[in-house]
Each structure stands twice: as C-alpha cells, then as structure tokens.
C-alpha cells in the first residue's frame, strides 16, 4: 500500500539509518543469508526511549520491559494458545488482533482457519468505536476489511497457506504485500513450526499461530513443542471489574475484558505472567491493577446486594 510506504519513509529516517548501520556491520562480520538482519547482536545498543526497527512494543511498559528487545520481534513465529480448552478461543483471537492492530504496516493480513467463525462486527467492535472513519495509519487501526480469510480443512493446509503467504514475493521498492499471517490450528507439529519460523524470519514478517484445541489439562504444555517459536503465549479471560449498575439487583454489567497473559517462553527472557485490561473504546490494552481480584469484587457485590 502506498500510504504505508510513504508514512514509513518519512517518519522514521533514524530507524532506517539504524537499520543500514546494522546491515553494514552484519556484512562486515560475514552475515549470511537466512540470518535475521535485525538480530540485536549486530545492531547498536538501543538507546532508551527508541524502538529498534523490526520490534513492536505492546504499549504496556511492564510487558515491554520484560521482553528482551523492548517489544515483540516481528520477523518470526509467535504462538498463542488458550488457557482453557475452547472457552478462551475468543481471547486468543482478540489478543492476536490486538497485536495486529499495533502493527505499523496497514497491509492486508492473511488469516487461515479450520473453522470460519471469526465474526466481522465483533472484530470491528473490538478495535475502537470507529476505526473506519479514523485514519488507519499507525498503531491501533484495524478494519475487518484487511483480513483475507482462508478456510482450510486440515492443519496441514493451514500451515501450507501460512507458508505460502510468507513466501509470497514482496513487491520491489518496499511495497508491502502482507503485513502478517495468522493461522488457527489444532496441534502444529515441530517441523511445520520450524519451517514457518524460517519463512517468517526470511520474509521479515510476523507469523502468529493460534492453537485452538489444547488438551484440557495442557496448562503446562510439553517443552519440546515450544522450542521453535520466538514467543509462546497462553491467554485466558479473567472476571471483569465492571461498573456496578446492572439491570437487576442481582447481576452486574460486564465490564472491560480482562485477560491473563502468560508468557510461557521467549528467547532471551524469563517466563512471565501479566494481567491486562482491554479497552474497546481506544482499541488498546493497559495493565490492570493486580490488587483488585475476584474475592474483593464478590464482596462488594454481596455488600451491594445486601444494601
């Protein structure tokens, strides 16, 4: 998309300079094909406050400082799984959409799935009240029209579509074809994931794999399956802290969605766990206050019910 191109070229001269420097250094050290050009080992030490190219901050300082590069490294594979089987499918998808919404590039996104149940109005509503009328440059902008949905029958077909999307030729002169590829699978094999990781690294674009059918007891998944992706997340819904005005005295209104984000694995960082709150109005998340938790909420509800 030409708009994305121009925005990228003009607003980030410093980023381009950094990237060029990194490449020259890489060439000097015998950097070979297939190795990520944005490898932090090759680049300058990152100055505080600036984001190196190819890194996408999540906008939550606690998470960004936990991640090794100050954000997610884009050129690579990221796995997102649900905390509980089936029930957290929507959270998995929305966390992925939240990440996609923060991408600087506004190109189309390939979304391959085995079950076509992603709902357009829901996607539109998740990302703020009117992203269509706001300019879609930069972070936070996301419209369902960007999605190229692919319906596949088997995991293998989903993974094939992802790889095909990653290996699609990039138009010369910086024209971005796909901003990202997303695939919903049951249980991807190690080999397939490694292929995807290599393809994503070569393409310099992110690839998100959403695991939709984890075992019911698969909270701590086996370590062998996690050795490939750059990051592996496990997300689930938490009770919300809503406004306390309900239609009846017994029930309260649902509040902003709260998610628990477990960073199970990340290259160069320890596992971590975060609680964030999603804001539909801004299409962004923020760290939720950790002290407020279920028992307190229940207590207030009970108190209100009594009074």
């Amino acid at each position: 998309m030409p708009t994305a191109q121009s925005g990228r070229g003009t607003t980030r001269p410093k980023a381009t300079l950094t990237e060029l420097r990194a490449r020259i250094r890489a060439l000097e050290r015998g950097w070979e094909r297939g190795q990520a050009p944005h490898d932090p080992a090759w680049s300058d030490p990152v100055a505080p406050g600036t984001v190196p190219p190819g890194i996408m901050p999540l906008g939550v300082p606690a998470i960004d400082s936990h991640l090794p590069d100050g954000g997610l490294r884009l050129a690579g594979l990221h796995e997102i799984a649900g905390l509980r089987e089936e029930w957290d499918d929507a959270v998995v998808a929305s966390f992925c959409l939240a990440l996609l919404g923060r991408l600087a590039e506004t190109g189309p996104i390939l979304w391959a799935a085995r079950r076509p149940d992603l709902y357009g109005p829901g996607v539109a509503g998740l990302m703020g009240p009117d992203v269509d009328s706001a300019p879609t440059e930069g972070a936070g902008g996301f419209s369902p029209g960007r999605l190229i949905l692919v319906r596949a029958r088997r995991d293998a077909e989903v993974l094939w579509a992802l790889e095909e999307g990653l290996r699609a030729p990039v138009a010369q002169h910086g024209g971005v074809v796909l901003s990202a590829v997303v695939g919903e699978v049951g249980e991807p094999g190690d080999t397939a994931l490694r292929r995807l990781q290599l393809a994503a690294e070569a393409a310099g674009r992110p690839c998100f794999v959403l695991c939709r059918r984890l075992f019911a007891g698969g909270v701590g998944t086996t370590a062998s399956a996690t050795a490939v992706a750059l990051t592996r997340w496990r997300v689930g819904a938490l009770p919300s802290m809503g406004p306390s005005v309900g239609p009846s005295a017994e029930t309260e209104l649902p509040g902003r969605p709260r998610w628990r984000l477990d960073l199970l694995r990340c290259r160069g960082a320890a596992p971590g766990s975060f609680t964030v709150e999603w804001d539909d109005a801004t299409g962004d998340f923020a760290l939720a206050a950790p002290v407020r938790d279920r028992p307190v909420a229940q207590e207030t509800a009970a108190r209100r019910r009594a009074g």
Binding site: M1, V177, L178
Partner: peptide
Amino acid sequence: SGDSESKISDLIDRLTSRL
C-alpha cells in the same frame, strides 16, 4: 512500481487453486 495488488491476487489464486 510496487505492484502489490497483482501480487495479492497471485497469492489468492494460488490458495484458491489448492484449497
């Protein structure tokens, strides 16, 4: 030119022809 639209349609064709 960054002829991105034709590249996208190539990709869509490839996906459609297999799936």
